[in-house]
Write a protein that binds this DNA or RNA. Structure first.
Lengths: 190, 190
DNA sequence: CCGATAACGATGCGATCGCATTGAAACCTA
DNA sequence: TAGGTTTCAATGCGATCGCATCGTTATCGG
């Protein structure tokens, strides 16, 4: 057996460099060399752990989703209304770190249009998001499944749209958050 | 004076090729050579009319926005509720051509995160969109300016979010349209 | 202590990139 | 018809790309 290194840690270091490049220059800026340089490692190392540029890019969105899931699971046990708001507000760029994360996210949304593997990861993530939100709305508001789901899709879409506007600079993060809270607590007709 | 050609026409032919490349391969797929090949012209021609790759890319979003504005202006004279729905529903990918257009649009949204000129074009376009929607809501529903604007931002964000979901395949175009119509006609609390 | 093997760093290769340059048609004016 | 100007095709260049390959180092079971 050779030298034992923390495989997960190595991969994370490299993916962190990838995220920085994507946030600053978009996925266009990603190359084995630029990511290696940003992560402060050799290009050989990147190749060793990811093999191919495409695999590296896919690993980037995969890890991003996994992190978001872990953050969400940390809210387990809190009241359904809180957990719902966590999902709706998590991606609104309040902090600088959050802004980077959500910038990377939307870079991958665009990538998903032309890349099957990325699209499937995002589709699965949004599917789970709708499921969880539907569940929380059912619990919190006592709606039936169909009504709750329609409300969930609406709230999630609103969150997406407002996040985009906050990223472009059209509105502030505070305005986006206020609009989501207002829409979430507004009573709906059938 | 030399050979007289239709400058606008030439530029449009090339940009049409650009849009196809962007829809199929994303902005990553754009190069002077690939666009020239897709448009069926020589690379020299592309250089002659746009000079630089960056200028070509910017021209792509510029023309896309101008086309949307022209389509919208064709609705002049129609009732405000119709014009509002035109803006809200225009980008929902109902037809294949519409799908290509909106795919290109979101490719540029991602590009805007790292490209100042693109960001400013998109910011101006969304600003105008909010203004127009606000005006129509005021006229149609008799709200004051602040309420109408908040409603406009909400409806536009919802439209954005639902469009994204329709693109990824999460929901159908019909479901997206139905949700927008429902939310638009739903009475709001203060 | 010694081979076997994982973990790389370094380097080379062919392809593609953006862009500058060059020169030849094509066309209008005088 | 002579000349000036626009249009544009062709080509060359240096840089960068993804990826394959090769050699070295470090580590641990036997």
């Amino acid at each position: 057996m050779p030298r034992a290194v923390d495989h997960e840690q190595r991969r994370f270091e490299i993916v962190a460099g990838l995220w920085q490049i994507v946030a600053e220059q978009g996925i266009e800026g990603v190359s084995l060399r630029t990511v290696a340089a940003r992560a402060g490692v050799s290009m050989g190392r990147v190749q060793h752990y990811f093999g191919t540029k495409d695999a590296l890019v896919v690993a980037g969105i995969d890890l991003l989703v996994k992190r978001a899931v872990i953050e969400y699971e940390a809210t387990e046990g809190r009241p359904p209304g809180d957990r719902l708001l966590h999902i709706l507000l998590q991606q609104i760029p309040a902090t600088e770190a959050g802004r980077i994360g959500v910038t990377v996210w939307y870079a991958y949304v665009a990538k998903a249009m032309t890349h099957t593997a990325v699209r499937e990861i995002l589709a699965e993530a949004t599917r789970v998001g709708v499921e969880e939100c539907t569940r929380h709305i059912q619990e919190a508001d006592g709606l039936d499944e169909a009504e709750a789901r329609s409300h969930a899709v609406e709230l999630l879409a609103l969150s997406d749209g407002l996040t985009l506007r906050a990223l472009i600079g059209d509105i502030t993060a505070e305005e986006a958050e206020a609009l989501i809270r207002a829409c979430r607590s507004r009573p709906r007709g059938s």
